[in-house]
Amino acid sequence: MKALVLDGGRECDLLTPVAVLEMISALGERMDDVELVPLRERAIAMCTGCFGCWTRTPGECVQKDDAREVLRSYVASDFAVYVTPVTFGGYSSLLKAMLDRCIPVLDPRFTVVGGEVHHRLRYRRYPKTIVLGTLPSPDPETERLFTSLVARNGLNLHQTFEAEVLVGVTDPASARRYADQLLDRAGVTA
């Protein structure tokens, strides 16, 4: 079993590194293979909205950078874990840049999911997605927004994502407890 962890933490972020480390540690006890991608250290250009990945080179972005290898690894994983500072209820721009570049894994043709129109899936199987957000202090409205964004992202992949927001968690023991709870909920077993 393989897990891919996308670390969307910025340089100045104090909370996300703890969440990432403890998530990696928790995954390491349940998986054979855990790959960490610190997005701030990768060359990942932002999506240009050209739709070349659907209409020029179907399934592959026309931009040749690190995002291609991340996507290859994503498709080969059993679990994908996003870790990000919650940014106005959304993802950090680092993680968002990678997620915007993930649309090649979808087929452009439309289908109906949960009563709404979404895109068809390109692959037969996708990793189960788990999202861990970090917030410095309680902010229920931002947490609610983040949770609903994650749920909507799940619809795009025709699955249910699992999410948790760590509020003000700086000690490793608490971060580990949350990571374990989240993995239990997502059905990640040793």
Binding site: F51, T55, R56, T57, P58, Y123
Partner: peptide, 29 residues
């Protein structure tokens, strides 16, 4: 809208002279 959209993707592929089918899986195992 969805019927027109699905047709539109095909037309764009033709314009772009795409060599792969629309559902191609470059990273399939």
């Amino acid at each position: 809208y969805t019927m027109g959209g699905n047709l539109g993707w095909r037309l764009q592929m033709r314009e772009n002279k795409a060599k792969r089918p629309i559902g191609y899986r470059p990273y399939a195992q």
